[in-house]
Amino acid sequence: MIAQNCRTIEHNDIGGGYRYLVFESPEMATAMIPGQFVHIRVPALEESALRRPFSVFDAADGLVTVLYKTVGRGTAALNGVKVGDTVNVMGPLGHGFPVKCEGTALLVGGGYGVAPLHLLARRLATPKILFIGGRTKDDLLALDRFKKLGVEIRAATNDGSFGEKGFVTIPLDAAIAELKTKGEKFALFTCGPDGLLKAVADRAIANGVPGHISMDRHMICGVGACYACIQKTVRGNSRCCIEGPVFRSEDLVW
């Protein structure tokens, strides 16, 4: 892990309260494993506010990209960062996804939970399908970026405005059934709201395949020092920032 001041290269509002923040750090871009996160000191608040953790959306060519949603005081203040400004970043942090997969990788994302799945898709050499869900088509983020990587996309929206109508588990279950019929191997990778994570973890366990679940818990230190961001696991109270954010489905206690 390193801590450094990084120059902001891009900061784009993509609508719906979502933004890409791109900063320069060849060291972090090289070292970053999909599923790891960065811990950012919010410039306008740096005197007294805690850092904010963000999943890494992309890490390539010396640049690190995070995809975030403006949800509170910290992210609202982060909106004010301009191209050329420096941000203080700690990273790479946490335990990420394995970057190998036997058979097809089924990536399941909800909301900005697609962020770590994008870097994973970039690094995974195996065939992969992104299952993406949201309330409406505006919640389906970064589809263009996944397409650029050549990832097959299967979507579902609650209102049927894009893809299938209903939960993302509908196309996911169809794909799992198809792979099983063909006798093909697969593994599950997910990030998103807790309900989705549990649904994916249950399917990994039920099918006896690897399930890699990225948990989102409020953090303080981001490095394992404070024991705030706890997730119950078979090992007890595990820290999301260092033992996670990515846990194996069979290790999680819901």
């Binding site: 818990r217 409020h218 303080i220 706890i230």
Partner: peptide, 19 residues
């Protein structure tokens, strides 16, 4: 094992924790 989660809340001027 410590306390159940959530274990902290950010407040103006600091942090309330019950780790």
């Amino acid at each position: 094992p410590g306390n159940p989660s959530p274990r902290h809340a950010e407040v103006p001027g600091g942090l309330v924790n019950a780790i």
